[in-house]
Amino acid sequence: MNNQAIADQTKLLMSRDWLKATKAFQTKDVYAVYKPFYNSPYNLVALEYFAKWIHPELFNDLNPEQTFEEMNKQLGDHDVKGIFGISNFEVMAKQS
């Protein structure tokens, strides 16, 4: 998915009334991770993103992008590049 597609989907999600009513929306704690991270060995990468977002001061040294790239290189023998975890509010700010 390219940057514009991510921005478009983020804007659609963030416009939903049910999301706007949540505390996470009000405190700007709405994030997204690459869907294949669910129910796979890549859960580790998703957990690293969540740890950094929830407790950035404790997990400053985690690098989920690097973990994902290393897992693919070592276990799958191929390179990956892209956007795999984002702050939805940062995406929205870039569109303003």
Results as ranks from 00 to 15, higher is better:
70 E>D: 15
31 Y>V: 07
64 P>G: 01
63 N>H: 07
10 T>M: 02
41 P>V: 04
58 L>T: 04
21 A>S: 11
90 E>F: 05
23 K>D: 10
27 T>K: 04
66 Q>L: 15
15 S>K: 03
40 S>C: 04
95 Q>A: 08
6 I>D: 06
44 L>A: 06
27 T>C: 05
45 V>F: 09
58 L>Q: 09
13 L>G: 06
30 V>F: 00
38 Y>W: 12
67 T>A: 00
10 T>C: 05
40 S>M: 02
92 M>F: 07
74 Q>E: 14
33 V>S: 07
78 H>E: 11
65 E>L: 09
19 L>H: 03
9 Q>D: 15
41 P>E: 08
42 Y>T: 11
14 M>S: 01
3 N>T: 15
67 T>R: 06
10 T>A: 05
34 Y>I: 07
62 L>M: 10
55 H>T: 01
45 V>I: 00
55 H>E: 11
9 Q>V: 13
19 L>K: 00
45 V>C: 01
93 A>I: 03
64 P>A: 03
35 K>D: 14
92 M>P: 07
44 L>S: 08
96 S>D: 11
63 N>A: 07
70 E>V: 15
23 K>F: 05
58 L>W: 09
88 N>C: 15
56 P>R: 04
1 M>K: 14
91 V>R: 05
73 K>T: 11
77 D>E: 15
67 T>K: 06
2 N>H: 09
82 G>W: 03
92 M>N: 04
15 S>L: 11
49 Y>H: 02
40 S>Q: 03
69 E>H: 13
46 A>L: 01
51 A>G: 03
16 R>P: 08
57 E>F: 00
77 D>M: 12
91 V>T: 03
67 T>F: 09
88 N>D: 13
19 L>I: 09
71 M>N: 08
34 Y>A: 05
25 F>H: 02
82 G>H: 09
76 G>N: 11
70 E>F: 11
48 E>P: 05
67 T>C: 01
36 P>N: 07
8 D>C: 11
26 Q>H: 06
45 V>E: 07
26 Q>L: 03
54 I>N: 04
57 E>W: 00
8 D>Y: 08
87 S>M: 09
37 F>D: 09
86 I>A: 01
